[in-house]
Design a binder for these strands. Structure first.
Length: 582
DNA sequence: GAGTTTGAAACT
DNA sequence: CAGTTTCAAACTC
């Protein structure tokens, strides 16, 4: 990514057209280099819905490259947006293109092409999908079916694909068509049964089925069964038009469509199907809840993220209070010594009893509403007090993550000090602050580290469960086909399977028919290994945390501050990624 | 793998 | 801005 244009490429130059300058200015305004900027403009390839379904075809593998799929350009010299590499802002590398100029050796031509492209369209290299991981989160929302609502900047203009094939950029980006689109007979809309049919994971990972479903949906084999009115081939006028059509002919739509699968589905999930649009009720029960979901979807839930953030803030507050208590006690002691008299009754603050040690239990296990002083609990359970202290890092995190509901209750106007006494905020020395921050950050980092490790471990477990299940099934099927004979091909297959079970090797099978018990044992073995692995992870975390205990307060503060800032960024990325994955 | 279809990009 | 052409990816056979 450090190829392509240098920074100077986007610096204002005399004689450049306004669109170019604006585009370059835009690139600068964003927080990445022009190259990265350009690279972010092509988000769709490796994340296409079909790929995310886990298709196992060669095509699918090709669709998950470390760089966009190798192009095959012949006439464009890879210097036009036709070329995926060029559009992605990267050099061609290992492509099958002919007469390629998208390389270091043709930097001049390439630069001219970039400028020409920007002149035509200053947004040419901007992210096409607003709301994707590569775009702004602002317009992104989650949908109940593991889909992210985002918008294609320009929208698609599909006419024949029903926006259910990868010709459609919206579909390819796994987003619904939006008002920006000018597509005809769009089926890539919320509630579309055709779209849901595509994501039916009972057939999942079955490329042929997916494609068949798409074709059927597009041609009407699913949608109209040949009896209903032909697809209206006119401009979609919002989603209502389509919905009205759907309501009219949905009763026909699934008559010939995978009856068994229809029967399997029971719980209506979409507003469309729950709307009772079908007279006989058959289609009403047909709702697909089997859309793509991240393996972490059940582990990292939005409320978990919210809770995590809330708890981190809570610990921050606790740490601040603890430090304030200690400091006050110290001051009292000093005062007592100075006066040489009996210690005056410490004006205890109710929060003094919260107890820092108490707050080191797992954030998931803890009920945030019942373990902290009333001041820390808000009506929405966000556990925040407007008077609680927060470190700059915490504030930065919270103020920046304004989409988190709890953050809305936070004042972002600066540092607040512990409410020990009215005079404290005036006289609190800087060293106390940094000490407080260090304590806050230490606790927050500790908890956050635990949380992340926990998520990772759970994710690994789940991944392995899925992988081992699939591998076991594959191998057993193969056994079945071979009627008990294990040939070289099977051995090869097993060898190929091995890497997919997360490094937990399946025990070697004895030659002959694979017994179900063996498969079960394999499964248990895997789980056992995983549990062991989990233990190792926990111990590793402990060791790391233990070893991270630096000696001096300054070191601790610096270390923790740096780590915290890193973690802050990680939190943001994690939240963003997790939200997208969910 | 060749041929066809498709829709974005480029062009007029 | 609309219509047409070019282009390369997606798709089909």
């Amino acid at each position: 990514m450090d190829i392509e244009m240098g920074e100077s490429d986007f610096s204002p130059k005399m004689g450049q057209s306004r669109p170019i300058l604006e585009a370059k200015k835009l690139a600068r305004q964003l927080d990445f280099t022009p190259v990265e900027f350009a690279a972010k403009s092509k988000p769709v390839k490796k994340d296409s819905p079909l790929v995310r379904q886990g298709q196992n075809t060669a095509k699918a593998k090709d669709s998950i490259p470390t760089k966009p799929k190798h192009c095959n350009c012949k006439s464009s010299r890879c210097l036009k947006l036709y070329c995926d590499c060029f559009a992605s802002g990267i050099y061609c590398d290992g492509c099958n293109c002919v007469n390629c100029h998208n390389n270091l050796g043709n930097e001049v031509a390439r630069r001219e092409a970039v400028e020409a492209t920007l002149e035509r369209n200053p947004n040419a290299f901007r992210p096409k999908i607003v709301g994707s991981p590569h775009g702004s989160r602002d317009s992104r929302e989650e949908l109940g079916e593991g889909l992210i609502i985002a918008k294609h900047n320009k929208g698609c203009h599909c006419k024949k694909s029903g926006c259910l094939k990868k010709y459609c950029e919206c579909f390819q980006a796994n987003i619904l068509c939006s008002d920006n689109c000018k597509c005809l007979d769009c089926k890539n809309i919320e509630g579309s049964e055709e779209r849901k049919a595509l994501f039916h994971v009972d057939h999942g990972n079955n490329m042929a089925y997916l494609q068949h479903a798409a074709n059927a949906a597009i041609t009407g084999a699913i949608g109209n069964s040949g009896y209903g009115p032909p697809p209206v081939n006119k401009k979609r006028k919002g989603h209502e038009l389509f919905f009205s059509l759907m309501r009219k002919d949905t009763s026909h739509r699934y008559e010939h469509f995978q009856q068994k699968d229809i029967e399997k589905m029971s719980s209506p999930s979409s507003s469309l199907s729950s709307g009772g649009h079908n007279a006989n009720g058959a289609a009403a029960s047909y709702t697909s809840k089997l859309t793509y979901r991240s393996l972490l979807a059940d582990i990292i839930r939005p409320q978990d993220l919210k809770e995590l953030c809330s708890v981190l803030v809570m610990y921050s507050a606790e740490a601040a209070k603890k430090m304030a208590d200690e400091r006050k006690a110290l001051e009292n002691q000093t005062e007592m010594c100075n006066k040489g008299s009996l210690a005056p009754s410490v004006q205890e603050h109710p929060e003094n009893h919260t107890g820092g040690e108490k707050g080191v239990s797992g954030w998931i296990d803890r009920n945030p509403g019942d373990t902290i002083s009333p001041e820390l609990s808000t009506s929405d359970g966000s556990l925040l007090s407007r008077e609680q202290p927060m470190s700059p890092g915490t504030l930065a995190l919270l103020c920046d993550e304004q989409d988190l509901s709890f953050a809305a209750t936070l004042p972002c106007n600066g540092l607040m000090m512990p409410p020990v006494s009215s005079s404290d905020s005036k006289v609190l020395p800087g060293q106390h602050r940094s000490k407080t921050y260090a304590e806050q950050e230490k606790i927050i980092l500790t908890k956050f580290c635990y949380s992340l490790k926990r998520i990772i471990t759970l994710g690994e477990i789940k991944e392995t469960q899925f992988s081992s299940l699939a591998v076991t099934e594959l191998c057993d099927r193969f056994d079945l086909v071979n009627n008990g004979s294990i040939g070289n091909a099977q051995a090869d297959m097993r060898n190929q399977c091995a890497p997919f079970i997360n490094g937990v090797a399946k025990p070697p099978r004895t030659p002959g028919r694979a017994s179900p018990a063996a498969a079960t044992n394999n499964s248990y073995s895997t789980k056992s290994d995983l549990l062991q692995k989990k233990g190792v992870v926990s111990q590793a975390v402990k060791r790391r945390l233990h070893s991270s205990g630096v000696s001096s307060e300054e070191e601790k503060s610096t270390t923790l501050t740096n780590a915290f800032m890193k973690s802050t960024m990680s939190v943001k990325r994690s939240i963003s990624s997790a939200s997208f994955a969910l």
